[in-house]
Design a protein around this nucleic acid. Structure first.
Lengths: 149, 149
DNA sequence: TTGGCTGCAAAACGTTTGCATGTCT
DNA sequence: AGACATGCAAACGTTTTGCAGCCAA
């Protein structure tokens, strides 16, 4: 974790950037925060540590992390962008329509099939997103009842 | 097509809605339009037929179609929402990062695997979205060159 | 006649940007 | 000193909403 922060620091330097206090706070908080955070959540958390951090800096820092490959932007269709750290291996999402919870899964076979499909279309894939929408274990019973009505 | 419009009409009526001229135009144009249209594109097209159609009506009509299950909202990360008719069978997308083109594919095996994964997580799936990002056949060579530089 | 529907303009939303100032190297 | 980063507020583009009038049932 500490090594990670140092590595990012030097990558930022190599990219022509500097180490600032606000940026450091945002980065630390981002990697400690749960997955799929919004800028608003991060800003609030960063402000708790340093009152003066502005939202613009959080936006800029996350864009930077995304550009360096440490974060991924997500859009689950809520009208807000969410960010996720790229430290854990790639995974896809199960998004609950009722409680909004997002859980994750990996399925190597799906990945393989995707690459195959892409190749078949002469398409050079660089990334993909697979989100399954529905009802999670806890919300599914209620959803079934509503549908029956 | 005509039957479709009549069916939608009666579903709107059953939903407590009325048939208005503007709405009818928007719906017709939406189903004739190519796939993945934006509200702005539809508004322009609708205005050609009826100068006074407002964007708000197009937004409202598409939300209505989506609620009734005739349209799907898409977000390919351009900052604009795109709508697609649900008439053609389900498919997934290959999104080109260079030219922005979107092509489609179907892969039943992927669908099957998705349902399996969901079930394994106690998740009740209702829909999903799979977008593969990368470079299309035409743009891939240029992308490879740039990467090599 | 009642309610939904409309167009318009204004508001709201998340995000980006311009700028003067502050901070790192 | 110089370059880059910051916070603020204004700008932005898309989508939503309030409202007075309109139109379908």
């Amino acid at each position: 974790m500490d090594t990670l922060l140092r590595r990012i620091d030097s990558e930022i330097a190599a990219d022509g950037g500097k180490r600032s206090k606000s940026r450091k706070h945002v980065i630390e908080i981002f990697f400690k925060a749960g997955t799929h955070v919004t800028v608003e959540e991060l800003t609030r958390a960063a402000r708790r540590r340093n009152r003066s951090v502005g939202a613009a800096t959080v936006y800029r820092t996350l864009k930077l992390l995304a550009r360096l490959g440490y974060a991924t932007e997500h859009d689950f269709g809520e009208g807000v962008r969410r960010y996720e750290s790229n430290l854990s291996p790639h995974h896809d999402h199960l998004v609950c329509r009722k409680c909004g919870g997002v859980s994750e899964f990996e399925e190597p076979e799906i990945e393989t099939l995707q690459n195959e499909v892409a190749r078949r279309h002469g398409f050079l894939p660089t990334a993909h997103r697979l989100d399954i929408y529905g009802y999670c274990r806890r919300c599914a019973p209620a959803a079934r009842e509503e549908a029956a009505r």
